[in-house]
Amino acid sequence: MSPLKIKRGSSSHSAYDLRDYHEQTIERHTLAVVVDNEAGVLARVIGLFSGRGYNIESLTVAEIDHTGHRSRITVVTTGTPSVIEQIKAQLGRIVPVHEVHDLTVEGPSVERELALFKVTGKGDARVEALRLADIFRANVVDSTLESFVFEVTGTSEKIDAFAELMRPLGLSELARTGVAALARSKADDKPS
């Protein structure tokens, strides 16, 4: 520890994060990155992760402001605290990146993911799949006599759990969107 009297503790500015550097536990963080919606911007972000050996667990990107040409990238990553700080600093260095938010440390946030499940089967398995779908509040968005397509929205853990249940019941295809996340409302939030 520093012999100087320097305030410890984290602020939202990555470089001033003074948590224990030698902490080696792997943390999972959800980052929201607001970027100019221009050609190649996603390649820059992905290239940063692959080039510097960082992990991507999930990545979601779409335009959020057509007139302002802004997109929002939600990336779930894992690493030691110092690696997470590096990732944020490196993201901030990319020229078309406007904002980098670490939703995991910046206060409460909500995370949602959407998934589509195709479950094929007959008889009891088919009935059981429909029953479980109801428990998970999954919607049936397509159906044939031998299959359903379910839509499930929720946390990644909920989707994992639903997939585990569907697997023995004839899960034949699965598509997931990856995580989208927002910080929860604060008193001073204004419409953008």
Partner: peptide
């Protein structure tokens, strides 16, 4: 030593060596 680091690039801070006084 106590280390201070003056750098214009925030990603240089604590990249390799942890410093007590990061000045961006």
């Amino acid at each position: 030593s106590v280390k201070a680091h003056i750098d214009i690039d925030p990603s240089s801070i604590n990249k390799v060596i942890h410093v007590e006084l990061p000045i961006i």
